[in-house]
Design a protein around this nucleic acid. Sequence first.
RNA 1: CCAGUUGACCGGGUGACCGCUGCGCCUUCGGGCGGGGAGGAAAGUCCGGGCUCCAUCGAAAUACGGUGACGGCUAACGGCCGCCGGGGGCGACCCCAGGGAAAGUGCCACAGAAAAUAUACCGCCUGCCUUCGGGCCGGUAAGGUUGAAAAGGUGCGGUAAGAGCGCACCGCGGACCCGGCGACGGGGACGGCAUGGCAAACCCCACCGGGAGCAAGACCAAAUAGGGGCGGCGCGGGGGCAACCCCACCCGAUUUCGAGGGAAGUCGUCCGGGUUGGUUGCAUGAGGGUAUCCGCAAGGGUGCUCCAAGAUGAAUGGUCACCACGUCUGCGUCUUCGGGCGCGGGCCCUACAGAACCCGGCUUACAGGUCAACUGGCGAC
RNA 2: CGGGGUGUAGCGCAGCCUGGUAGCGCAUUUGUCUGGGGGACAAAGGGUCGCAGGUUCAAAUCCUGUCACUCCGA
Length: 113
Amino acid sequence: MRRLKKRAEFMRVARGIRVGRSYFSLQATAVAAADEPGLGFTVTKQMGNSPERNRIRRRLKAASLACAVGFKPQHDYVLVGRRDALYVPFDKLVGELAGALSKINSRMPTDAV
RNA sequence: CCAGUUGACCGGGUGACCGCUGCGCCUUCGGGCGGGGAGGAAAGUCCGGGCUCCAUCGAAAUACGGUGACGGCUAACGGCCGCCGGGGGCGACCCCAGGGAAAGUGCCACAGAAAAUAUACCGCCUGCCUUCGGGCCGGUAAGGUUGAAAAGGUGCGGUAAGAGCGCACCGCGGACCCGGCGACGGGGACGGCAUGGCAAACCCCACCGGGAGCAAGACCAAAUAGGGGCGGCGCGGGGGCAACCCCACCCGAUUUCGAGGGAAGUCGUCCGGGUUGGUUGCAUGAGGGUAUCCGCAAGGGUGCUCCAAGAUGAAUGGUCACCACGUCUGCGUCUUCGGGCGCGGGCCCUACAGAACCCGGCUUACAGGUCAACUGGCGAC
RNA sequence: CGGGGUGUAGCGCAGCCUGGUAGCGCAUUUGUCUGGGGGACAAAGGGUCGCAGGUUCAAAUCCUGUCACUCCGA
């Protein structure tokens, strides 16, 4: 799994399609040049102070590792954390992420490259 | 036992599975193994330094900013320790920007006669006048009124009425003496009531401060044309055959002096091009622990010993189980009726909070808990 | 990393420098004008001056600490 780091990559994914959940928001777009899927995290300052932001990002990271098969190659994903991701039980977070992934992959246009 | 004060400290533990980071070793270059991996505040960024650059940063003055009893500690500080003075508390103890108001300027609302060179509204008193209501000249400040604050206080004498006018006590100033390194404390001849408050008002005095900050700075790689236009100031003068010397100009808030440097231009503005990587700085330091000596203490000397995170869309974790702690509750038991102990169940399954060049402080946040010393009260002996 | 600004009535702002009375506009309530609404006029109510200390006789104002929001530069 490739980690998104540049601002330009986040801006490109933000122009793609989007699926919202109460614990996070998932954005995705198709990228032709990449063989393995790319994943980035966004937790804004309004979600809390820095230990809470770190914990949201780490829990989302662990949840995305649990359902890694949902991330398709030649696609970039961005997880935007929400504050409820701090307290929700972990298996529920994984289930929501798997559902969001299947929904966003089905809505992805197959010829869009 | 209850209430409290001060200081110091901890701030989850164990196991399993799955991960991250950098170090060492191995490697079939896929990776594997071993050991390391957040804090007391890492926070706020309020002070002080180290370090780096500004070519170089020395002295004095001005401006600006900061600090403010005294003695010490410290690399330094606005920090800390001790002590003095003032205030609070029954006490342990706590709090204080705590220099100067006879250097000058200013302010003190409303009320009040008067708010600072004292003054005289109601009053009191002598004298004169009177239409008997009072009025005028003068003396006086005891009493009244206002206010946060009223020009020493109380008593006696004194007087026309009064007044430090005189005396006693208290307060105030105070030569000088004694104690202390000092701030200051104790005594006090004598003076004769004088300097009301505000400087976190302007200000004066003393002391301190060159500026910017690790995105500082250095190197490598890649790319590029390290480019062009406009404007300002310069590229000067004298001596000497020459090297060079002197004068003038410019050099980081301003001025002057000194030292050194610049003229291979520099500054401002506009247009255009390339990059958005890596290494270093970067973790051995005013470092921690311990023993001993000096010091009331802050702290310092010496010996021994230890090496303890290094990320960069930013690692140091995620999940589960058990235990401990806490809290709520049921039953049993004991009770000095506050509660304690044992067993079971539920909840939280932890507070504040995440290193970003590094140190010394300050300030602020913090569930719960531990220890020590001391104070007040109650009870028993 | 460095440097500013703001916080006052439900909303938007004065007042702060130079300390003594907290005010303006819109909004709210009531009344009058109108057959009613709108509108106009008149009156009224409403503020721990972000929070905590300190200086002062007296603090929205001065000083210190702190919290929140916001802007600028690198």
